[in-house]
Design a protein around this nucleic acid. Structure first.
Lengths: 339, 339
DNA sequence: ACATTTTTTGAAAGCCCTTCCCTTATAGCG
DNA sequence: CGCTATAAGGGAAGGGCTTTCAAAAAATGT
């Protein structure tokens, strides 16, 4: 049978209240009795039962994270930041991985109702208004990462400006035939399961073209489900056009890798004949010497936990937004076009 | 104020015990009263407080997983299997990510003592005898994945035979100058933070050479910390030897990618001039057309949960071992050597 | 219809903490 | 030294559930 606070109290010759105060670092315990209690705790190898504590506190001491963490290296990196940050707190981290629409529905619905967590972080899955209403009704503090809703705190990057940044850089090198390679650009409200960032990066791409008075060529935008393989197929399509682009802006590093691979297969040299720029700066990008837009993935995890903890302390706090900076990382896959 | 079982009982005109029995599908409730209770639950939007349930059950209804899940795609894949399986159960999944020795120590020590989880899965981090003793003393059912201890249940593959399989295949193609590229082969007992699999695969490699009466060339074994970049460096070293190998067996697909990259940089054609075989069959391997030894990563996660749940049901159960099968996947990076 | 089982139900005890309220011990001060 | 102000500690209440136990209700048998 496990050792309880009563055993400790008896051994130390004090009341259970005193033991609890020692455990919770209450100042109103004389140093001598504190020592006595500490000794008893040591001797009995006592550890408070966390379930009883949670019950008494009225908190679960757990934070949930809903993510599609396996589909992209960038999610994993974010999750890494979250775990690191949560580990420093008194909270446990419970993960919910979404791979199907059914699971999305289930988690979005049951996690708030069931009161299993004190707070929630959602990575990259845009919640509907109804979802958000439920979170708020259930008083479940929620922070979004890499997705957006006006009524919830969020950690974001400015994907529009990231898209511009990438495109402007290519333009500054002298490119005018610039393709954009991404996953399908669905309206986030219509398809709650899709990434929203590709759409915004696309908007930035369009803006940059417009500013430079370069006409947009619809065929230069190719989209398909996010994968290395699909990206390679799309890049092949782009490079086989009668008037192929001289530069490809890929909505993610993974897709940029597909573009590089396609170029290699076609014997097109990078960056001499084709420039490729990615997005994210995942670990492998440095290795591939890929020019890309870096977003602070790990840090986004840290910051989201920071915000969430602050909401947990002050439940009345207003939703807030943290903008993380994007950075152009120039490596070896971009160069001026040949003539 | 949240709705409790008392509210439901009052509304339904029954005692709380009856409500509880309805919640727990006890057979000893008349159908008519059950319906009455159900109606009240619906009407009040009642959800039982999980902390109170855990308290009463004397269980945490949580499973912990300790892993280094971010360093390798193969861990993530295992974790995916674990999450999928846990999601089907009544348990929550709490993740503990280990990136430093300090964190390893902390988790291995505190997780069992603190009684935060009912069961534990450990991926790829070999526990010491002292660790295991602690798990058993604290009655914490534990399952190891891709690591071993005689006193704990585990899900493993036969890495020795995997190493042989890879090497024998290269030999069967006609290779005799076969290199092994891996991370450092530490004694698992001496360095609890290292992977053990590389060592066993090495043993398999040596066995296969011996069986084919091919003398082992020490310089053909190169080891460094696990990373794409390091692997590339090692491969360069191998390929610059006066008598370079005609085939490289890499201890992981990631490392095989490094070898492929090195070959590309040196202008050595694969598989014509150099064969490369990897290990794991991670997602990207299919894309790269990499010959490799497939291990069922996702399934290893599923099976580990299965075993753990069974131990949770029957605490007296003996530790058991599940062996998963390895499979040679022949793709396009291996071929007979040229003469 | 009555006695006897069997089923169903209500209520209390228990799970292990925290916290509040009140008593007791200590300290400070005149 | 005695009195008040303050610090320290004991113990009960409370948190929301499960489960046991005993009582009530229904079912069965005669």
């Amino acid at each position: 049978m496990p050792i309880t606070i009563y055993d400790v109290a008896k051994k130390a010759g004090v009341g259970i209240g005193t033991v609890s105060r020692v455990l919770n670092d209450s100042p109103k315990v004389r140093i001598t009795t504190r020592n006595r209690v500490m000794a008893a705790i040591q001797e009995l190898h006592y550890h408070p039962n966390p379930m009883a504590q949670r019950m008494a506190y009225g908190k679960t001491l757990a934070i949930g994270v809903i993510t599609r963490f396996f589909t992209r290296p960038s999610f994993v990196e974010r999750l890494r930041g979250i775990e690191a940050s949560v580990a420093e707190s008194e909270y446990d981290l419970i993960v919910y991985n979404v791979e199907t629409l059914a699971k999305r529905e289930r988690y979005f619905r049951t996690v708030p109702m069931s009161h299993r967590v004190d707070g929630l972080i959602i990575i990259c899955l845009p919640p509907t208004d109804a979802d958000v209403e439920r979170f708020i009704e259930e008083k479940l503090p929620t922070v979004l990462v890499d997705t957006y809703h006006p009524n919830l705190s969020r950690v974001v990057v400015d994907d529009v400006s990231g898209g511009r940044m990438a495109t402007q850089y290519l333009i500054s090198l002298g490119h005018r035939k610039i393709a954009y390679l991404s996953d399908p650009l669905n309206d986030p409200l219509a398809s709650p399961f899709r990434f929203t960032s590709s759409l915004y990066r696309y908007q930035g791409y369009r803006q940059a073209l417009e500013e430079a008075e370069i006409p947009f060529v619809p065929r230069y935008h190719q989209a398909a489900e996010h994968s290395l393989y699909q990206a390679k197929v799309l890049a092949h399509r782009l490079l086989s056009l009668p008037d192929p682009p001289t530069a490809i802006f890929a909505a993610s590093d993974t897709q940029a890798m597909g573009a590089l691979e396609a170029a290699r297969e076609k014997g097109i040299r990078v960056p001499e004949e084709l420039s490729v720029i990615g997005f994210d700066d995942i670990e492998i990008a440095a290795y591939l010497r890929l020019t890309t837009i870096r977003q602070p993935l790990y840090e986004s995890g840290l910051r989201s936990v920071e915000i969430l903890l602050s909401h947990l302390d002050r439940p009345q706090e207003q939703p807030r937004q943290v903008n993380l900076a994007l950075e152009l990382v120039i490596r070896d896959t971009t160069a001026p076009p040949r003539h």
